[in-house]
């Protein structure tokens, strides 16, 4: 409740700050930075958390760490999508095109492709143990290209000069006054939101596992374990067979 109130108040505050008149085609749209920047930071943080959880999953080999590993990649993917969509909206208004192969845009797209590869690999295994081990290994391998794409590629001299994306606004102290305060507040709120979503996703994942285990342990009428995923032969009485023959 308190969190919802703070989010509402900060959203109102973000709408009340004066328009950014310099360098913007539509000054009101400069406020998208309040949402775009925290999403990008959260995605970058989850790029570290994901491989960490994957390593823990490979070491511990327990369903809990597998759920944590998958949840961290899911949250990273969702915030990556939000970063991409807010960035594309700004790009269209400011520079006239949804997509322009900007190094930052491209690197984020490739990170989303890496995340997609992780989810595709998870979906390809029906066995939980193999799914956990293989997807965790992929989660670790993902770390090297992801970190290269986010932290190295956009800063390479060959491509950095072709980028419209501002990279040193905060370091140069150009973000000041209400814009700085709203941005920092939003960053804190998005961090809390992502942690809360992560916790909920882990709880949901653990509940799914508990439910599956419960179903597996349920007894059928004959006293045998429930045939989850297994088609068993059906017993026919003599009368049933005669009737089937007649039909």
């Amino acid at each position: 409740m308190l969190f919802a109130l703070v989010v509402g108040a900060t959203t109102v505050w973000s709408l009340l700050v004066p328009d950014a008149l310099d360098k913007f085609q539509v000054p009101q749209l400069a406020r998208i930075f309040f949402y775009h920047f925290p999403c990008a930071i959260i995605t970058s943080i989850f790029l570290f958390i994901g491989p960490y959880m994957a390593i823990r999953s490979l070491i511990a080999k327990t369903p809990e760490w597998d759920v944590r590993s998958a949840a961290s990649n899911e949250i990273g993917f969702v915030f990556g999508l939000l970063t991409m969509s807010t960035g594309m909206l700004f790009s269209k208004v400011q520079w006239g095109a949804w997509w322009q192969w900007d190094p930052r845009q491209t690197s984020f797209l490739l990170v989303l492709l890496l995340y997609s590869g992780y989810f595709v690999l998870r979906a390809a295994f029906s066995d939980e143990t193999k799914r956990a081990a293989n997807s965790a290994a992929y989660g670790v391998v993902m770390a090297l290209p992801s970190l290269f794409l986010i932290f190295v590629f956009p800063r390479l001299p060959q491509v950095a000069n072709d980028s419209f994306h501002p990279t040193t606004t905060i370091q140069k102290g150009l973000l000041v006054g209400d814009y700085l305060h709203v941005t920092l507040t939003m960053l804190v709120l998005f961090t809390v939101l992502s942690a809360w979503l992560y916790k909920l996703r882990v709880q949901a994942g653990m509940a799914e596992i508990a439910l599956e285990n419960l179903n597996g342990n349920l007894e059928t009428r004959g006293g045998h374990p429930a045939p989850t995923g297994v088609v068993r032969p059906v017993h026919l009485s003599e009368q049933d067979r005669e009737e089937a023959k007649e039909r």
Binding site: L110, L113, L114, S116, G117, Y118, V120, L121, A124, F125, S126, K130, N134, Y138, V141, M142, P145, F148, L149, F153
Partner: peptide
Amino acid sequence: ASGRGALAGAIAIPLLLP
């Protein structure tokens, strides 16, 4: 995994794009 023929390429190419 199931559908491994196409899957290997699908998960390898994003890793190789950098």
